[in-house]
Design a protein around this nucleic acid. Sequence first.
DNA 1: GGTCGACTAGAGTGATCGATCTAGCGAGGA
DNA 2: TCCTCGCTAGATCGATCACTCTAGTCGACC
Lengths: 202, 202
Amino acid sequence: MPTPPPAGPPAPTRDRILDATADLFRRHGYTGTGMKQVVTAAQAPFGSLYHHFPGGKEALGVEVIGRSGEMYRQLFDVILGGAPDYVTGVGDFFLGAAELLRATDYEDACPIATVALEIASTSEPMREACDVVVESWIATGVEYAGRAGIAPEPARALTIRLICLLEGAFLLCRVAKRTEAMEICAASAMADARAVLADART
Amino acid sequence: MPTPPPAGPPAPTRDRILDATADLFRRHGYTGTGMKQVVTAAQAPFGSLYHHFPGGKEALGVEVIGRSGEMYRQLFDVILGGAPDYVTGVGDFFLGAAELLRATDYEDACPIATVALEIASTSEPMREACDVVVESWIATGVEYAGRAGIAPEPARALTIRLICLLEGAFLLCRVAKRTEAMEICAASAMADARAVLADART
DNA sequence: GGTCGACTAGAGTGATCGATCTAGCGAGGA
DNA sequence: TCCTCGCTAGATCGATCACTCTAGTCGACC
């Protein structure tokens, strides 16, 4: 879905640009990332950038948000799908996030949060792209909660609480350069999921 | 504490610059806010900016973070101190945040989150300023939880959970332009506080 | 009343921003 | 063999970036 050209083999340059931009966005945000930095990091010529993204920086941003969001959503699938049960999967996700923070010196966190806050009041197309991503995360969370036996309505509220906890913990951990908040939220998230699950069984 | 000059009456220009910058930071972030925008919004001459903030944009940023963080911390005092009980105060804070979001078309939210994520991997002085602010929020939260009868250790964990929920809800609400997440988190926050309080009484 | 420093005021600095331009490369079809 | 066209390649555009500079204003203190 992300490639406007009709067919043909995927252009590696285009993908390199998207990957490099996603990486820079996570670390420096949208306005903090220059197009020159992008082509340098992607090892791509400047002309290729505007050939593949004629809509300029904003169009590139919209696509990067969608792509990064989808990759993160797939991480939900991998971890929640691979866990022995729902509650364990939820805990694994938070603890995995803590591990990632430590491993990257608190640089890599949520792929869209930094950009989302920056552009929420500035770029409507990018805000909408973020909204779509978050809703896809919620939908995936609801699906796994549903498989565990939780009805759609409480599943949505639970999933939103979990995402809020995760995003907030990302913020606190990056600011403090410690994973204390993430570990506290991991325990809270598991307890919440466990409680909703127990409630669903009555 | 914020004024380096030894004494004298407070300069309104300096305060106007700080207020205008805080406002712009909330909406557009750090890199998204230009010094020219600042002086325009503050109705201050360009020369005054660098007279009052010889350290440039980063020094201005550090001071704005500290100032905005302290103002928000005082809001904790006002709401938690004015509520009939701790749990109600917690709920009031979240619902007040939801009201603020709606009233400002989802522009005004956490005064430091946008900047914090942007500069966490870029500017160490600003990251540290954010860290100090968050710790001050936690300390205030712990204090009010303590007055309600909660021991310091569970109080800290509870407060961190509440701040994470709040920050995450700010993100989701700004992205979705809806307060659903904040309302869900408000209920969750109250339930969490109530449970910890009940546990403390046994 | 004169002096001095705090502050105002804005033109101007080089650097970098996002974006555009033309030129050339190289593989597939006529 | 030549032509076409997706793509590479980078020089270059005006605008804007954070910041510096000098000149001028104003009020407090001697």
